[in-house]
Design a protein around this nucleic acid. Sequence first.
DNA 1: AAATCGGGGAC
DNA 2: GTCCCAGATTT
Length: 360
Amino acid sequence: MPDLDTLPDGPETLRPALLAWFDRHARDLPWRTVDGGGQRDPYRVWVSEILLQQTQVVRGRVYFENFVQQFPDVQSLADAPTEDVLKAWEGCGYYARARNLHKAARIIAETQMPTTYDGWLALPGVGPYTAAAISSLAFGEARAVNDGNVRRVLARLYAEVQPGEKWVQAQADALLDPHRPGDWNEALMDLGATICTPRRPNCPACPLSAHCVARRSGDPAAYPVAKKRSPVKVVRAVALLIGNAESAYLEQRVGPLLGGLYGLPIEEGEGALERLLTRLSARSPLFLGTVSHSMTHLQITLEVYAAESELMGEAVGARPLSRLDHKALALLSGQGQLWEKPPHAPTQGVECGREYPQQE
DNA sequence: AAATCGGGGAC
DNA sequence: GTCCCAGATTT
């Protein structure tokens, strides 16, 4: 016969414990507002869930407030140009979220808004987590979410060192309170975000501490083990600035990386500067400096040159730009000396800098 | 199953 | 520097 003292406690024990805590400590967040009938606006729930993918709440909140003010409903979003949506997303990262959100809005405007998990899952940018979140939070469907918070909380609750996706979903499904699915999902996520944190969980404040196997083990932060990461790729590229920090020649990027955003013309590899000059009919390049930009899987070093060309610049502020391009443009704002070549260029050991003509 | 896709918070 | 963040999509 198994030792009952070491068995994890069941749903009947855990549900009331966590929900009672949630009723008192739920975070006050703008997408949680309800109407007179106690219902949430599915559009606001949807927008928030897309914004919060891999984005911390404090940060997503700022973008959410601005986004729903500019696009208060599905129709206004569907009617907007993609570029306006990207501009509202500027600086938030993972821009495929904005592109897919906009694409889905146009699909909804042409058909109707889904009301079920399966319906939401069929839309671009909506995966298993987001479909479960929207269907439970806005429509009361009994679907258990599986995000980073849920994974960590359940891994500790059951002392599972390497919780797989299937395992987490199975535990989440079993624990979900079918009477309050939305509240249960948010309770688990609030707990993970405020109490059961990655580095130093605040176990004394946790409503589940008496039931947590990882805490009983003495080192709850050891669960789960960190996921392996692929090595960061190092990239070197050259950018050309025609114009100045306020008005410059920009290109719209294509492809998955920063796709849809605008930025300085860029080339990679051998002869990058020469190819840029030829492609843009530019001349008299002057080295402005380098900017380094780190992303999760990329470490980009950009050598920025200023050059002259007949190409017309445009107002930089009107376009959506990545942080990388804002850094590159900032070289022209607070610059000191400019160089014909990078100071570290191995061609000669003598510095050959010269003053750049003052811009008026 | 593993890579790719941003940028920043917290340590 | 590390790991992580209300993940989804592509390879």
